[in-house]
């Protein structure tokens, strides 16, 4: 397998009146062709910004300031806006978090799906509408031909998210980025959406990047998981390795805070004390050190680099001075 997307040392800054504040601090990530990568981390750790920066969609006053992001051989960060625009939708598709607000309320869903086909691929309107109906059927919407004429407010949340997925797939992208697409949905619908995306990925051989803060949800979907903390990757490993031998103290904390069937009733779930550092106020050493129960003197002095874990899976990498040498003891 070759890397479809390879991010190296990406840094993203917020321009503040007091000077730039770093939110993403040297992220290294790769997505193989046909692979699905789960990016896990708490709010504000830079998950979404990293993905938005790839296609030039960062909000005002937030800029990618360093590193590279090679997609299919070209550095996305160096591409001009117009080239990025052509890439969006056709090469890199997006599914957004909130299906309630991510559809244009005054446009019929059929038109919204056909939009990209008409304006990006130059397809004629009747053909595009025909394709839109196929896409709706593909994402499991019953009587798709009737639904083409529906407005977003006539559909339920789960249906709208299916429409969003259909829109994301319309340009047949090689990489589909799903930015917490199930957060706004009921648990039962969440599982349906995860199943749907997995089926579609296998069917089209796309790569998928699934951004979430829900480790349990991603377990059924991802081949590999990257754990982000305060704008850096702290652990990156195949999904079964993350669950079997979590190595970074933050990953262990996340997993420990998941409820399991064997938990005794009425016991409190463990939580990770403290809060992540504010952008621009990160500690000099390991960003997790102030919250880490295993922290040593070395952790406050230098930032640990992402490195292979000896004795574990060859793809297992972690950024920790203390636990990396343990060989991924569970």
């Amino acid at each position: 397998m070759s890397a479809l997307l390879e991010i190296r040392g990406l840094t993203i800054d917020i321009e503040r009146d007091t000077g730039p504040a770093r939110v993403v601090d040297g992220i290294d990530l790769a997505v193989e062709e046909g692979e699905s990568l789960g990016i896990v981390g708490e709010s504000g750790c830079g998950k979404s910004l990293t993905m938005l920066s790839l296609v030039g969609l960062l909000p005002n006053r937030i800029r990618a300031t360093g590193g590279s992001a090679r997609f299919a051989g070209q550095d996305l960060l160096a591409l001009p806006q117009e080239a990025l625009r052509k890439l969006r939708g056709s090469q890199i598709g997006f599914i957004f978090q909130d299906p309630m607000t991510s559809l244009n309320p005054v446009m019929r869903v059929g038109e919204q799906i056909a939009e990209a086909l008409i304006h990006q691929s130059g397809m004629a309107k009747p053909a595009a509408m025909e394709r839109a109906a196929e896409l709706l059927e593909l994402v499991g919407i019953p009587s798709p031909r009737d639904r083409l004429m529906a407005y977003p407010h006539e559909l339920s949340g789960g249906m709208r998210q299916r429409v969003m997925i259909a829109i994301g797939l319309a340009g047949s992208p090689r990489l589909l980025i799903a930015d917490e697409p199930t957060t706004a949905l009921d648990v039962t619908i969440q599982a349906q959406i995860v199943d749907l995306v997995r089926d579609l990925k296998d069917r089209f051989g796309m790569s998928v990047v699934w951004i979430t803060h829900d480790l349990a949800l991603i377990a059924g979907l991802a081949d590999r998981i990257a754990v982000l903390y305060a704008g850096t990757v702290v652990e990156d490993a195949p999904v079964e390795v993350i669950f079997d031998r979590p190595t970074h103290p933050y990953t262990r904390g996340l997993l420990a805070s998941l409820p399991t069937l064997t938990d005794r009733p009425m016991t409190r779930l463990p939580s990770i004390g403290g809060t992540p550092p504010e952008p621009g106020r990160r500690p000099p050493g390991c960003p997790f050190a102030p919250r880490c129960t295993l922290a040593e003197a070395a952790c406050d002095a230098a930032v640990p680099k992402l490195a292979a874990v000896p004795g574990s899976d060859p793809r297992h990498r972690v950024a920790c001075f203390v636990t990396a040498g343990e060989g991924g003891r569970a």
């Binding site: 296609v55 052509k86 890439l87 607000t101 559809l103 244009n104 309320p105 319309a170």
Partner: peptide, 20 residues
């Protein structure tokens, strides 16, 4: 969000402005 979604579709500014 739906304007960001339209951008993520690679639509041009003119289309986003007039249709979204």
């Amino acid at each position: 969000p739906y304007v960001t979604a339209a951008r993520a579709l690679g639509l041009t500014n003119r289309i986003i402005l007039t249709r979204y």
